[in-house]
């Protein structure tokens, strides 16, 4: 005979469910409240600078704390260029690692490589910065940069891109460090989604006589593109906002140079460098306005990623 559920137990369940619902709802709302608060205070803090310089704040290259004149163009430029370098190097390498782990790697090697990548993600960014400044930058200065400058000296456009004295630090070095830092993010997510591809699909493709490359190209990547793009976006978000490591190796110069070997600055590096000693109100406000611009850039990047995904899905007819 089925046992009767007592009314008390039922009421207890209802109470628990209600509690769960309101707790989770509060958690979700907290995110919105915090985000809203951040936006409001960023806008409020940057008003004086935006009022003083207008739209010229975004396009001006001057950054002069002595005369209290500020422009964000070098910082915006540096942020975008370093992230671009990080992505150009980081995406292919990460996806390559993920493909190797999921498709080609002998079983005994899988664990060590995966663990190594997860450990990379656990290294604090200040360590990357110090390592970059003391170990990586001198190496670049002595070997890679003179080679690049020499190799492209005669090439028409590239000679400008790789020009100037080899400082060892600069936009290029910052981009390289960032590419190492985004590696674990993109790799671990792409590896996870690659592993989620149903074996049937892959086996069917192999059965038809596909090469490994064809299976990856035609089966794995199309099946997982949403996840892969998600991983890339996570990495890009990290690259755009990374502060400490970049501050150490970028050279911190508010200038726009044609050469990617030249020193530059990023939005977050400028804020980290200058906020403590920013004495005038306009100075502080200009730095907060930089933060607002970074916020907007991140938002645009995320929105663009969503849009891209949407279009790809429509094209694929899903």
């Amino acid at each position: 005979m089925p046992k009767q559920i007592s009314g008390r137990a039922l009421r207890g369940h209802a109470l628990m469910d209600g509690l769960l619902r309101s707790l989770t709802r509060i958690s979700a709302l907290t995110v919105l409240v915090v985000l809203g608060g951040v936006i409001v205070s960023l806008i409020d803090g940057s008003l004086p600078a935006l009022r003083a310089f207008g739209l010229g704040f975004v396009t001006s290259e001057t950054w002069n704390p002595v005369k209290d004149v500020y422009g964000a163009a070098p910082a915006i430029y540096g942020t975008l260029i370093t992230s671009l370098i990080a992505m150009v190097i980081g995406i292919p390498v990460s996806i390559g690692i993920a493909i190797f782990i999921t498709e080609l790697c002998p079983v005994w090697l899988k664990r060590p490589i995966s663990t190594a990548i997860e450990l990379l993600a656990g290294i604090p960014s200040i360590i990357y910065g110090i390592w970059g400044l003391f170990t990586f930058a001198p190496l670049l200065q002595r070997h890679l940069q003179p080679f690049l400058i020499h190799a492209f000296a005669r090439a028409p456009l590239l000679s400008h891109l790789f020009a100037g004295p080899p400082y060892g630090i600069g936009l290029f070095t910052a981009g390289l460090i960032l590419s190492i830092m985004v590696l674990p993010f993109i790799t671990s997510i792409t590896r996870d989604v690659f592993e989620a591809v149903p074996p049937m699909l892959k086996e069917a493709a192999y059965g038809l006589g596909c090469t490994t490359w064809e299976v990856v190209r035609k089966v794995v990547l199309p099946y997982t593109r949403a996840g892969v793009i998600g991983g890339i976006m996570l990495g890009l978000g990290r690259a755009l906002g990374e502060t400490m490591a970049v501050t150490f190796v970028i050279g911190n110069a508010h200038r726009i140079s044609a050469s990617i070997l030249a020193p530059g600055t990023t939005i977050s590096a400028s804020i980290a460098n200058e906020f403590t000693e920013a004495s005038s109100n306009l100075y502080t406000s200009a730095l907060i306005a930089l933060g607002l611009i970074l916020f907007v850039i991140t938002f645009i990047v995320l929105a663009a990623a969503r849009f891209l995904l949407l279009r790809m899905e429509r094209k694929a007819g899903v």
Partner: peptide, 8 residues
Amino acid sequence: LEWPVGVG
């Protein structure tokens, strides 16, 4: 300062 040259 607005440094004319160099790395920071």
